[in-house]
Simulated assay, not measured.
Amino acid sequence: MGLDEITTAKPHDRLRHALARELDAVNALIAERMASRHAPRIPEVTRHLVDAGGKRLRPMLTLAAARLCGYDGPYHVHLAATVEFIHTATLLHDDVVDESGQRRGRPTANLLWDNKSSVLVGDYLFSRSFQLMVETGSLRVLDILANASATIAEGEVLQLTAAQNLATDEAIYQQVIRGKTAALFAAATEVGGVIAAAPEVQVRALHEYGDALGIAFQIVDDLLDYGGTEAIGKDIGDDFRERKLTLPVIRAVARADAGERAFWQRVIEKGDQRPGDLEQALALMARHRTLESTRATALDWAERAKSALSALPDDPIRDMLVDLADYVVARAT
Results as ranks from 00 to 15, higher is better:
residue 114 D to R: 04
residue 103 R to Y: 14
residue 164 Q to V: 11
residue 311 A to R: 09
residue 279 E to L: 08
residue 22 E to Q: 15
residue 157 V to E: 05
residue 231 A to M: 10
residue 286 A to N: 09
residue 248 P to L: 08
residue 299 L to S: 08
residue 41 R to T: 14
residue 120 L to M: 12
residue 98 D to R: 06
residue 193 G to W: 02
residue 157 V to P: 00
residue 115 N to H: 13
residue 79 L to P: 07
residue 138 S to H: 09
residue 166 L to F: 10
residue 200 E to S: 12
residue 108 T to I: 09
residue 93 H to I: 13
residue 143 D to C: 02
residue 307 S to R: 15
residue 53 G to F: 09
residue 4 D to Y: 14
residue 160 L to H: 04
residue 304 R to V: 14
residue 103 R to P: 13
residue 136 T to D: 00
residue 167 A to T: 04
residue 159 Q to G: 02
residue 4 D to P: 09
residue 90 T to N: 11
residue 118 S to C: 12
residue 294 T to C: 00
residue 318 R to C: 07
residue 96 V to I: 08
residue 163 A to M: 13
residue 298 A to S: 02
residue 167 A to Y: 05
residue 296 A to F: 00
residue 172 I to P: 01
residue 157 V to F: 09
residue 212 A to W: 05
residue 277 D to C: 02
residue 53 G to Y: 06
residue 38 H to F: 10
residue 11 P to T: 00
residue 73 G to L: 11
residue 122 G to Y: 01
residue 276 G to W: 02
residue 186 A to K: 03
residue 211 D to L: 15
residue 302 A to K: 04
residue 117 S to G: 02
residue 104 R to H: 12
residue 44 E to F: 03
residue 65 A to E: 10
residue 201 V to F: 11
residue 66 A to C: 07
residue 259 G to F: 00
residue 60 M to Q: 15
residue 190 E to C: 14
residue 129 S to N: 02
residue 99 E to N: 15
residue 10 K to P: 00
residue 239 D to R: 00
residue 123 D to W: 09
residue 138 S to K: 05
residue 201 V to R: 12
residue 38 H to M: 14
residue 257 D to H: 06
residue 231 A to K: 12
residue 161 T to P: 00
residue 119 V to W: 09
residue 59 P to Y: 09
residue 189 T to P: 06
residue 205 A to Q: 09
residue 97 V to R: 11
residue 4 D to K: 13
residue 198 A to Y: 14
residue 109 A to T: 10
residue 200 E to G: 08
residue 96 V to G: 07
residue 313 P to A: 05
residue 217 F to G: 01
residue 215 I to K: 08
residue 300 D to L: 11
residue 128 R to A: 13
residue 171 A to L: 05
residue 322 V to L: 11
residue 236 I to D: 00
residue 181 T to H: 01
residue 65 A to P: 06
residue 140 R to E: 13
residue 136 T to L: 02
residue 156 E to N: 00
residue 22 E to R: 12
residue 166 L to I: 03
residue 223 L to E: 08
residue 287 R to H: 14
residue 195 I to F: 06
residue 72 D to R: 15
residue 263 F to T: 07
residue 151 T to N: 04
residue 53 G to V: 12
residue 184 L to I: 08
residue 123 D to S: 00
residue 107 P to Q: 03
residue 268 I to R: 03
residue 208 E to H: 14
residue 287 R to K: 15
residue 296 A to Y: 04
residue 59 P to C: 06
residue 133 M to W: 05
residue 156 E to I: 01
residue 239 D to C: 02
residue 232 I to C: 04
residue 197 A to V: 01
residue 264 W to Q: 05
residue 332 A to N: 01
residue 218 Q to Y: 08
residue 220 V to K: 03
residue 85 F to L: 15
residue 56 R to C: 00
residue 310 S to P: 01
residue 114 D to L: 04
